Amino acid sequence: MQLKGKVAIVTGACSGLGKAIAVRFAREGACVVVVDVNASAIEPTVEELRALGGDAIGFCVDVTKRTDLASLMEKIVEQHDRIDVLVNNAGMTRYRPFQTMSDEDWDLVLALDLKAVFFCAQAAAPHMIRQGYGKIVNMSSSHGTGATPGFTAGSPGGSSAYAAAKAAVIQLTKTLARELGPHGINVNCVAPGFFLTPIHSTTRTPEQIDEHIKNRIETTVLKRTGKPEELASAVLFLASDESNFICGHTLLVDGGRTDRM
């Protein structure tokens, strides 16, 4: 059990890839701290993780709120004495052609996909520094490594805010690794390719989803979509002591994407 006795925070843990990561962590012996803005989903998720034999606690927190995050970290340390792992998974997108993207759309995406990553790391870091140990895993995307086409929202890209935020997460990971590495904290990043999760249905019709899946399968050398548990395995590696000499790295988990500009 690679995370036995470790306290691991997963943001956006009640659905999609975050849920898969939380489940894998629970199976590996971690005390999983479920953090999500969806209050009604927290307790069922916690109960599911406990049923797997792991320990779990849950908090309803908006990770874009810096003061709320500081309070969250204090509560976790009060209950469990330490914070070993932070997975910055919470995210969103608003697909829009850039010429019609509003300030509201841009700000919402950047707040959750970039600022929240910084805020969460900033809130957890003092506790990791105190204990001389920590693992921070940030979630980027294949969109952060190249302008992948898809004709989403009537545009060949349609994801300028999301792509900009996810590219910035990669660079943020490198700068945090430089600053926190000397304190025994490994900061790394995962850049997923296409995994079918609820986020893909929020802005698409069923027909558009089918076409989107077909297009994405064609852009990978493995010719299939990713399985959430495969992404969870990559995150587990970076969260475990198996990756102790890896810092500032971005791990592509994308099936061999071939469509980067």
Rank of each mutant, 00 (worst) to 15 (best):
I217N: 01
I42H: 03
S155L: 00
T220H: 12
T64L: 01
L251W: 08
D55Y: 05
S201I: 06
G226K: 10
F25I: 03
Q79A: 14
E43I: 04
G29H: 08
T205N: 13
V35R: 08
K115P: 04
K115D: 15
S140L: 04
A111Q: 12
F98V: 15
T67Y: 04
P228R: 05
I170F: 00
T175D: 12
S142Q: 08
R66G: 00
I199W: 00
P126M: 11
K115W: 09
G53M: 01
T175Q: 15
H80V: 00
V35P: 07
R257K: 07
I9R: 03
I76G: 10
R96N: 13
I246M: 13
P228V: 06
L72A: 07
Y162V: 04
P198M: 12
D81N: 09
P182L: 11
L222Q: 14
I185R: 01
G134P: 05
L69Y: 06
R24V: 00
D36R: 10
V63W: 02
T45S: 14
P126I: 11
C120G: 11
L114W: 06
K214Q: 13
T152W: 02
L172V: 04
T152C: 01
D81M: 01
P149V: 13
R204K: 12
A70H: 08
R216Q: 15
A13P: 01
V109R: 02
K65E: 09
A161I: 04
P228W: 07
V137C: 13
N188L: 04
G255P: 08
I199A: 05
S140C: 04
L222S: 06
L108F: 10
E230V: 02
T202I: 11
G158F: 09
H212W: 14
G154N: 09
F245Q: 07
R82M: 03
A191S: 15
D81G: 00
I246K: 04
H80L: 05
R66Q: 10
P192C: 04
I21A: 06
M101P: 04
E47H: 06
F119P: 02
P206T: 03
S71P: 00
I136M: 10
C189W: 12
R96V: 08
F194T: 13
A147G: 10
G248A: 03
V46G: 00
Y95R: 13
C14P: 00
S159P: 00
G132F: 07
I21C: 06
T203Y: 10
Y95W: 12
K19Q: 09
R178T: 13
L3N: 02
I170Y: 00
A232D: 05
C31K: 15
D107N: 15
L238E: 03
T219S: 13
T100M: 08
S240D: 05
L49I: 07
D241L: 08
D210W: 07
L108M: 15
H183L: 05
A51V: 01
I199S: 02
D36A: 12
F245R: 03
I209S: 05
T93Y: 11
G16S: 06
L172Q: 03
I246E: 07
V85H: 11
R178Q: 13
T258S: 08
T152Q: 07
P198S: 11
G150A: 05
A8P: 10
M1T: 08
L172F: 06
G54D: 03
V23D: 08
K135G: 12
S159F: 09
P206W: 04
V169W: 07
S159A: 14
